[in-house]
Amino acid sequence: MRFNQLFCAFVVATATAACGQSFTAATPPEFVEIENDYDDFDYRAASADGLVFAVREIEHDPEGSRAFWARAIENRMRDQGGYALIDTKDVKTAQGIDGTQLRFGHDEEGRPHLYYVTLFVTDDTIYIHEAGGTKELMEQHAAQVDWAVKHFWIK
């Protein structure tokens, strides 16, 4: 049953992504893809209780290494956003693409939130995969977050 759900979600995500994007985002079960009303995002999905995924596709110009962009994101979030860098992980998608995941924490009105930014870099494009929500939700949906990153697909 669970496998079927995951498979269906994957198929739906694949089908809906056929509109000019150079990637296919995997939308886990219990999440719905949201029409992109925001210029910043090329893909967004949310759970009913407030955990959100997003993908940004950015032209890789000027060129920099994945380590460079990871550091740039880290500095931006820590120094200007006040986010705590909790962990940095190397990830690999099912497709075999290497990425870097930065895990940040941030309090808002006394509630701890988690924000994961996963970075994939190709010659032409930088892909930023984001996942965020309250710490409680992120921990509750940890498997789905990992699954979404694992099944991120670059065409």
């Binding site: 949201i34 029409e35 009303d37 949310a46 009913a48 209780d49 407030g50 120094d79 200007q80 956003g81 006040g82 986010y83 941030h106 309090d107 808002e108 009105e109 509630r111 939130h113």
Partner: peptide, 17 residues
Amino acid sequence: EFAPRSSDKIDPKFRLP
């Protein structure tokens, strides 16, 4: 001191679009 130099505000009320 637990304070960012500039704050990144999150709307506490989550709203599906």
